[in-house]
Design a protein around this nucleic acid. Structure first.
Length: 469
DNA sequence: GCATGATCATGC
DNA sequence: GCATGATCATGC
């Protein structure tokens, strides 16, 4: 067994799980009946491998050693590389108590300063006893990461102090997020500075950050990342947001032609990596490298081209959805929702007399009421696909559909996104009017007017670089 | 002029 | 071959 007050002893005992299945590591005959049929992997591991009773106390699982045990699923890619299946959910946020905490002694730090991680392969149909354990290891946040997390923690607490716990969202922060936790939207809690009940939430590490942990535990060769934050955190505690905006500020108002000429590089503005290349160029990161902090924080970088009236020339597209999938899944599991919950860095370029200029860059994440509106669009789309009533008319070879349009919602709409009309996905229900069993690929788009109003115009002066201010 | 439908260009 | 970012075309 192990010595519960000795970290190394616990870690060594845990390491024996590497590449095993739980069934081979515990006495199955001693298991309670309820667990023999099915049980949660984490519960089984705690109770029958480590031999302690389940608790949800505020102290870490191995209290004497200050070690918190976390189990989590990962996916194995075709390349055999590991990726986290989801965010890693940590301790619950107590809205009432947290407003009196300081980070260094907070319940978050007390519980999660040192984490013992057991990753198993996600296999939905497999008994928990037979899941393959892929990675075992312990994790402490490196100082630079801890500084970002401290800022994330503070901005979450700030929002609660402002009586806005009901407006918390995952996109608010970078590595550490407040994710919803509870069976449904009825899991409401009281918050200290507002009468409005708020969804129960827990601290969580973003999926991108968990991928970083996984790569470290797996001993993967360090990806060839570019980094934004180079100074040691004790010297520099500037936020990721502040660093990015500070680096971009000098370029505002310059034309893309001038910027690329000064840097001595040629960027093809039609290339699909134009956005990434331009961002790297302006942030001083080598062009072919991914930005480590952006990967960890799952930041989506988008460029938006504005007309002289500040209206984006196009709406913003998202990956096309599969009709068979959208008919089956829930909004909560949809890719569209997952993407909308991320943080965005939107780079606005503006056409002036035919020439493209760098206007401003804005960090943005969607407000809860807009996410609800996106949900309405998604649900209308799902209903349509389920009913098989996509096509409403055909005129001159052009199809007219009942997909949600910009008239339907001020936030999002559905439009084709395909090579051509023959580029299709199968339908779960044949289209009633045409009998088609497959239909041109479509995707969700954020309306260009929404981008103008909710991102471009609404962005606060403090967080933007405004060419014309 | 703009919304909706349709397709192009690129890179992995 | 296909996803993705980007843009064009038609008709009201």
């Amino acid at each position: 067994m192990y010595n519960p007050s000795d970290k190394n002893s616990i870690l060594a005992f845990a390491q024996q799980l590497q590449s095993q299945r739980l069934r081979n590591c515990i006495d199955v005959s001693a298991m309670a009946k309820v667990y023999r049929g099915k049980g949660n992997f984490g519960q089984l591991l705690e109770k029958y491998y480590f031999g302690y009773d389940l608790n949800s106390a505020s102290e870490p699982d191995f209290a004497q050693a200050g070690l918190e045990l976390k189990t989590a699923p990962l996916k194995v890619l075709k390349t055999k590389a590991y990726r986290s299946k989801e965010r890693l959910v940590l301790n619950l946020i107590n809205y009432v108590e947290i407003v009196d905490e300081v980070f260094e002694t907070s319940s978050f730090i007390q519980k999660n300063a040192h984490i013992l991680l057991v990753f198993y392969e996600h296999q939905p149909e497999v008994n928990a006893l037979d899941l393959q354990i892929k990675l075992v290891g312990d994790w402490r946040f490196p100082p630079a990461d801890l500084e970002v997390i401290r800022q994330d923690w503070s901005s979450i607490v700030q929002k609660i102090k402002a009586g806005k716990a009901h407006e918390l969202s995952e996109g608010d922060t970078f590595y550490l997020a407040a994710c919803t936790k509870g069976a449904n939207a009825n899991s409401l809690r009281r918050q200290p500075h507002s009468a409005q009940p708020a969804m129960q939430r827990a601290f969580s590490l973003k999926q991108g950050y968990v991928n970083h942990i996984i790569a470290n535990l797996a001993g993967d060769a360090k990806p060839n990342y570019g980094k934004l934050l180079v100074a040691a955190p004790e010297i520099q505690s500037e936020s990721i947001e502040a660093v990015v905006l500070r680096k971009l500020r000098p370029y505002c108002g310059k034309s893309i032609a001038q910027l690329t000429a000064e840097a001595g590089v040629a960027l093809n503005d039609k290339a699909k990596n134009f956005t990434a290349n331009l961002t790297n160029l302006l942030l001083g990161v080598e062009l072919d490298k991914q930005i480590e902090e952006f990967e960890k924080a799952e930041i989506t970088v988008k460029t938006v081209r504005l007309s002289e009236s500040n209206l984006p020339k196009e709406s913003m597209s998202f990956p096309h959805f599969k009709y068979e999938e959208i008919a089956q899944i829930q909004w909560e599991d949809s890719e569209f929702k997952q993407r909308l919950e991320r943080k965005f860095l939107v780079v606005f370029l503006k056409y002036i007399a035919g020439e493209l200029y760098f206007d401003k860059a804005v960090f943005w994440n969607m407000e809860p009421q807009h996410l609800l509106e996106a949900q309405r669009v998604w649900l209308a789309t799902q209903a349509l696909v389920r009913a098989g009533t996509i096509v409403t008319a055909i005129k001159n070879g052009r199809r007219f559909t009942a997909f949600p349009t910009k008239q339907f919602s001020a936030v999002a709409h559905v439009r084709p996104h395909a090579r051509n009309a023959a580029d299709v996905f199968p339908l779960p229900v044949p289209d009633v009017l045409t009998g088609l069993q497959a239909y041109t690929k479509h995707c969700f788009w954020l309306n260009n007017h929404f981008i103008r109003d909710a991102i471009y115009l609404k962005s606060q002066r403090a967080t933007v670089i405004d060419l014309f201010s």
